[in-house]
Computed example of a mutant assay.
Amino acid sequence: MDNKILGYLRENDKVGVRNHVLIIPVDDISNSAAVAVENIIQGTLAIPHHYGRLQFGKDLDLFFNTMIGTGRNPNVAAAIVVGIEPNWTNKIAEGIAETGKPVEAFYIEKNGELKTIEKMARSAAKLVEYATNLKKELVDFSELTISLKCGESDTTSGLASNRVVGRFVENFLQENGTVLFGETTELTGAEHIIAERFKKEEERDKFLKIFNDYQELIKSQGVDLLGSQPTQGNIEGGLSTIEEKALGNIQKIGNAKIDSALDYGEFPVGKGLHFMNTSSAAAEAVTLFAAAGAVIHLFPTGQGNIIGNPVIPVLKITANPKTANFMSEHIDLNVSGLLKLNGSLNDHAENLWNKIIETANGKLVRAEILKHREFVLTKLYPSA
């Protein structure tokens, strides 16, 4: 298997596989300025969202971590941050600038939107020139951080597509790679298996606290998650309980041991396999993984899911032959042959390895081709 890729070696020695000039609105009322610059300047990418006003406490901390982390992602060559006022705008810009990449900040107050757009566009043009002059370098595949999340799982997920991902993860970790996984509620019924996989007791305890806090939150609302967990799509696909779903879900990490437990959007320290506290909602989870440094996301799906992300390629794998047929424009790798014993688990994992190498070297995944750019922030509680 190929262990080298052509990637972008960033100023902080992280390796990216895309080369975005990102336009980051700090708040919802700055979205229009960010989108305007994207429309004017070729090679820029805006990430509009609905938050950034009157958040507080842990929710505000998570907001800053996500926005800064997104700008710090190795797939980003340079960034422009725009906000209604200077304080929060500068906080995000300065956090991104710590990586050494070029960052500019602009404020709409006391300037007006039209003048701000003009200033941003002039700056963006120069940053696009800078980014498009960067050269790819030959680097080890293991320098990448790859994240995992499945969606619209069915019986084929745990039997095949998740297992193929799991075998890839085992092989990638043997090469000293870095992998992030999460979906806290979707571990329900298999949390004891995950807990046993942690290498260090303190990280196991951190994971169990994260998991139990989530369970207590659900109980405090007096609700039954059936229909949300498993989803209606999961149930249609034959997964009748959360425990069934969880046991299929954890196949994505194979038999690998876990190095650490991370809270929302937290950066992993060191290589290896890291659990991150995330929602099981696809767009929210992928956004958090990107903010924590993932540069490619692996997304096994059973019934079919069309999620993408603006910053990182989301590579779709399915073992459901109907999904591979009827939703072919969304599927990057069909592993349904494994269910018919056409090829071994290792054969299909090698095919996935090669597909990821192609993606890392610049081949667009289906979600990128179809312009799926779902950037969705995780919100912990209502704003003030």
Rank of each mutant, 00 (worst) to 15 (best):
H297K: 08
P321R: 06
N31P: 05
K245S: 13
K126W: 00
R18Y: 10
L364V: 00
H192A: 15
S280L: 14
N75T: 08
G272P: 05
G52E: 11
D13N: 09
D140G: 11
Q55L: 11
I210D: 02
E329S: 11
K136E: 02
V179L: 10
N361K: 08
S383V: 01
Y51D: 09
L239R: 09
E183K: 14
F106E: 02
E196I: 12
K363A: 03
Y264M: 14
I96V: 07
V311L: 11
T185I: 15
E183M: 11
N162D: 04
V335L: 08
G71N: 02
H372Q: 13
L288F: 01
A105H: 10
L9K: 09
I250A: 07
G95C: 04
T66S: 13
K340N: 15
E113C: 04
D2L: 07
L345S: 12
G248A: 12
A261G: 05
I24H: 00
F141W: 03
V223I: 15
N171R: 15
E85S: 13
K135C: 03
A294H: 03
L364Q: 04
G233Y: 09
A294P: 06
K219I: 14
E368N: 07
N249C: 11
K101M: 09
L339Y: 01
A34P: 02
L54D: 12
P321D: 06
I92N: 08
I23P: 10
T323Q: 02
S153G: 09
E11H: 06
E109F: 02
Y8R: 10
L339Q: 06
N73C: 12
T145S: 03
P310Q: 04
P268I: 05
N346Q: 15
V103M: 04
